[in-house]
Simulated assay, not measured.
Amino acid sequence: MVKPLITTSTTINLDVTILLALVSDITHGPVPIQERFHPAIKRQLELESSGRRMGEEIYPLLHSRALLTTTTAKKRFVEIVDIVGSPSEKERMRMILEGQSEEGEWEGLSAYGLDDKNAGGAGGGGGKWELKLPVGVIEDDWTPEDQLQQRIVAKLSTVNRAVFVTGWKKGFTTITSNRTVAKTIEGLVEDGETGPDMFVLNTSRSLVGKAKRIDV
């Protein structure tokens, strides 16, 4: 179910919203607001400028953990970045999928880097978060094995089935910014049943390459 605290799982399953947040220019540095931007993107930029930075929310969750996504999620992620991603967003996508060509390459494309500014964090304050790249890719496995899984599969899109049900069956925590899907899943779990293990971030980040917002 949805976890209120940082997960202790050693393997994390990333959905498309989190993959996009990791590569988004908004996450990695100031982006001037332009009139052509979608209202959702403008709101995200306002949050970043107010100090509510995505990196400070997401890196503690991913620190030093094995990161995975599913075949279908990867395909959708690549499609979106190829269509609307900026050159720097496409470079980060390459690192997400292939790893860094050299140490420090990820931080070289970020104004904020991987510094842990929170006392008691990864380095006790002043250290760095460890982001294990590349993200591994596992095969989709969303064939229902019981009635609960059947109910959930019936209500989700192909991409979300691939992400949430595969992670569930593998025993991984899935991290997402898609609160709507998480609430849908929660609403299908009846008393005495145990659904997918999910951690939902309160904020999301879009790509700014062509100032569009694509639903995932």
Rank of each mutant, 00 (worst) to 15 (best):
V153W: 04
E102N: 04
R161K: 15
Q149W: 04
I138C: 08
W106C: 00
V165M: 15
E130F: 06
I83T: 11
I138T: 15
V159M: 07
E102Y: 15
K90N: 05
V137A: 05
K90L: 02
M95K: 01
V81K: 00
W168G: 06
R161H: 02
W106V: 01
E91V: 14
V163Y: 00
W168K: 08
G125P: 00
E145Y: 06
F164V: 10
D115C: 07
A122N: 08
T166C: 11
D82W: 01
D140Y: 08
G99Y: 13
G104Q: 02
G104L: 01
V135F: 06
D146C: 12
G127I: 07
S88F: 12
F172C: 02
K169P: 09
K132I: 14
D116C: 15
G99T: 13
G136N: 10
K169N: 10
K132G: 03
W129Q: 04
L156P: 01
I96W: 00
L109N: 11
M93V: 09
S101K: 14
G124N: 11
E107Q: 13
R92G: 03
I80Y: 00
E145R: 15
G125T: 04
D146E: 10
T158I: 13
R161E: 10
E102K: 10
R94F: 03
G123Y: 10
E103V: 07
M95T: 06
A119H: 08
P87E: 03
T158H: 10
D146M: 04
I83Y: 09
K90R: 15
R92A: 04
T143W: 07
G104A: 02
V159T: 15
W129N: 08
L131D: 01
E105A: 14
E102R: 14
S110M: 03
G113N: 06
D115W: 08
K90Y: 02
G125H: 07
S101Y: 03
S86R: 00
W142C: 13
E103C: 00
G120F: 06
R151S: 07
G124Y: 06
T158L: 14
L109G: 14
L109I: 12
R161S: 15
G121E: 13
W106N: 01
G85Q: 11
F172G: 03
G125K: 02
V81F: 00
G123V: 10
G167D: 07
I152M: 12
D116R: 01
T166A: 11
F164L: 12
M95E: 04
G104M: 02
K128R: 15
R151I: 07
G85W: 12
E89M: 10
G104T: 02
D82I: 03
F164I: 05
L109T: 08
M93I: 05
I138Y: 13
S157P: 03
N118R: 13
E130V: 15
K128D: 13
S86W: 03
G121Q: 05
K170V: 11
I83F: 10
Q100I: 12
W142A: 11
G85P: 12
G125R: 03
W106H: 01
A162T: 04
V84W: 00
G121S: 14
E139P: 08
R94I: 01
T158M: 11
P134A: 09
V163A: 15
N118K: 13
